[in-house]
Design a protein around this nucleic acid. Sequence first.
DNA 1: CGTCCCACCTGATTGC
DNA 2: TGCAATCAGGTGGGAC
Length: 268
Amino acid sequence: MPELPEVETIANGVNARVRGARIVSVWTSGKPQTFKSPEVEIEAVLTGSVIEGVRRVGKTIVVSLQKKNQKAEFLVHLGMTGRLLVAEGDIPKPAHTHAVLTLADGREVRFVDPRRFGRLSVLREAYAGPGVEPTTIGDVEFAALFKGRKIAIKAALLNQSLLHGVGNIYADESLFRAGIRPTRPAGKLTYAELGRLRVELQKVLARAIKLGGSSVSDYVDAEGMSGYFQIEHAVYGRGGEPCKVCGTPIKKIVVGGRGTHFCPVCQH
DNA sequence: CGTCCCACCTGATTGC
DNA sequence: TGCAATCAGGTGGGAC
């Protein structure tokens, strides 16, 4: 499900719970598609490692590991429906559990993913992600990303090798707040428009992170995703409903294969 | 390489 | 009510 704010919230929640813990054993489900590294390698790297910390890079949760001076990283991409839970070992495992990391104190880190678009892998070096971090990028670098591109700005925002972490909701929401139509060719936006887009994107991401951070336990424990919907969307999921600024019905179209919501009056 | 489109999955919701 | 069609917050690969 998650985009940048949700992944960050989950990574922070898991970090607070498991930093410093040692992984004593690992179980994996054997569903091949879930594992980008071979399962035997994931099990070998994780078993016996101490969790140094958990952070977000793009939409990926990165667990840094240390074992006898050897560093490694365990990468968890949640796809559309993935969850990373920390639970006492005696609590029954949810359906669609694909990996379980048992910690020395008996708790378990569980990766659960019904739709199986999520991916697990291990790396021997530090993970940098495919693109640029959107929450801290500046105007000049932001504008340069889109220069000369013919694709719709909405599709460009979703391209993880440009900015990593922006997904369908925050692409639509930031374009609405910046007053830009999602279908505009990215390379034809003015520097001022891109400046507005960067500011609005960073504002909406910051606000979502702040709201998500107040409900960490909801994400990380059994409850799952309830916290996400605290955020009031201006356009996402509101096709046919009145624009909150001008009252015109929000349009829903498809851009780059994704449902795309915008106000035909407020966005140019 | 840039762009477009579809496949990959299950589950919840909508519509007949 | 029941069942089929539709849709979902993400990627990655193949075609052009």
